[in-house]
């Protein structure tokens, strides 16, 4: 087989999959987004920009998504990094695996059930009740953006921990000794060696969590109680409740464009950060 033939052979399954499962549905969505809603819902072929003109009606959903997805990513990173660092660098080798499994344990039950647990914890008889006992009255947590943020961090933490853990675990510990030998205190060693060397893991984790968060709808539906909704919730509503396929498609197409835009910008940034280090592929 020629080089080219081999490449085609390697790419054929994924290519076919992408064509059927991604490109065709996307094309359908795009076509629908220029159509109109039928009298009884669904879709009537047309060519109009009316649906896009209507987008501001769903502004709140876009706003929530565009604030809470990055914020959730950042919050997950801030919590996941020290945890991953501890697991990879500090934890006793014998406990490493056990601790790592503990990080995944929550994944053994459905996110739906776990989020319901949070409803109780954040609801009137949960944390607010505890706060009331020490004199902090009238704290409302459930159905707020904060509740959604907590749910996000809780649900996506392992996804952030893993790439960073793998990265830090593979970090050559002798580099840390070399840094110390050259006069850098532990903190400066962290800033000058560990952190820059773990950029690839951070980049992967953030990208993974961010992309999934942009499409999230379960956590806001459960912990946001209809008050904090994402674009994902708007789509559920438009396609399943009001059966406005045309408008739903316009919202979906816009989300895809936003995602492409932000991910491209993000990749550029990471590439710039990693420009001076071709030894490790950042993506």
């Amino acid at each position: 087989m020629t080089e080219r033939g081999r490449n085609i052979f390697l790419l054929a399954p994924a290519g076919a999959w992408f064509l059927v499962m991604l490109v065709i549905p996307l094309a359908v969505v795009l076509i629908f987004s220029f159509g109109e809603r039928g009298p009884a819902g669904g879709y009537v072929p047309a060519f109009t920009l009316e649906q896009y003109a209507n987008l501001p009606a769903r502004w709140a959903a876009f706003k929530n998504t565009l604030i809470l997805a990055p914020a959730g990513t950042l919050a997950s990173l801030l919590i996941a990094y020290p945890l991953a660092y501890y697991l990879a660098v500090r934890a006793d080798a014998r406990w490493k695996t056990v601790l790592l499994v503990l990080v995944i344990v929550p994944f053994w039950t459905s996110i739906l059930i776990r989020s319901y647990a949070w409803i109780f914890l954040l609801g009137g008889r949960g944390i607010p009740a505890l706060l009331a006992m020490i004199g902090i009255e009238d704290v409302r947590l459930i159905n707020t953006p904060f509740a959604v943020l907590i749910g996000i961090v809780y649900g996506y933490l392992p996804l952030m921990v893993f790439p960073i853990f793998v990265n830090l675990d593979r970090l050559d510990k002798r580099l840390l000794e070399a840094s110390s030998d050259l006069g850098a205190s532990p903190w400066r060693t962290f800033l000058q060696v560990t952190l820059p060397m773990s950029l690839p893991g951070i980049a992967t984790g953030c990208l993974l969590v961010f992309i999934l968060l942009m499409g999230e709808f379960l956590i806001p539906a459960i912990l946001g109680g209809g008050k904090v909704f994402f674009v994902g919730n708007a789509l559920v509503d438009l396609f399943l409740q009001s059966r406005n396929w045309a408008f739903g498609s316009a919202v979906a197409a816009t989300l895809v464009v936003l995602m492409l835009g932000s991910v491209t910008a993000y990749m550029r940034l990471i590439r710039r950060l990693g420009a001076q280090r071709e030894d490790v592929a950042l993506m």
Binding site: R174, L175, D181, A184, M197, Q276, D279, V280
Partner: peptide, 21 residues
């Protein structure tokens, strides 16, 4: 601590920082 000693070491596998020139 090593970083407080007026001593430097050349490591067996050099331990050069790959992210620096």
């Amino acid at each position: 601590e090593p970083y407080r000693r007026p001593v430097n070491m050349v490591f067996q596998h050099y331990a050069l920082f790959p992210h620096l020139t």
